[in-house]
Amino acid sequence: MKYSDPYLAGVGLGLVLLAAFVLTGHGLGASGAFATTAAGSVAAVAPGYAASNAYFGRYVNSPDGPWRDWLLFEILGVFVGGFLSAALAGRLRGLVERGSGVSVRSRLAIAFGGGAVMGLGAVLARGCTSGQALTGGALLSVGSWGFMLTAFAAAYAAAPAIKGSWR
């Protein structure tokens, strides 16, 4: 089954973001769910250390703890929503997307490494494409538009080096 028209899908996504603004006062996010999960996991191993760490502490010492977090439940919803949409459209299938010259193992390694680099960037930027670009972008935040600008500039700068691996 074909994908939706990108403009219509974008308007749909914008209405979801608007609903988040109206119902909760804040927008969407994704990297924050990783932060609270990381904080909760570190706290499970070393509770004293996690509580005293300036980054993890914010999540660990919050009144509800790291696991009762808004963004964590939102991202679980993203997983379920993505699954439902693909299931309804007959698009569920196990595969590793990669270029023809790239082995499954190296694609998984590059994907993992890219994810880790994004993790560092998202911590520094206080959010990602969801929390900064979409949410902060719609609210006209200067930092969010700055994030969007440098993120896409860096991705375009890296693109020629990466393009070959996607043939």
């Binding site: 993203v78 698009r91 560092l120 860096a154 990466i162």
Partner: peptide, 26 residues
């Protein structure tokens, strides 16, 4: 952070939100 994020984004091919959708679709 944006510049670092963008580099990771290009390597990974997915951002944090879409990585969950990608994983959910198999």
């Amino acid at each position: 952070g944006g510049a670092i994020f963008g580099l990771g984004f290009a390597l990974a091919g997915l951002c944090p939100g879409t990585s969950w959708v990608s994983a959910a679709t198999g």
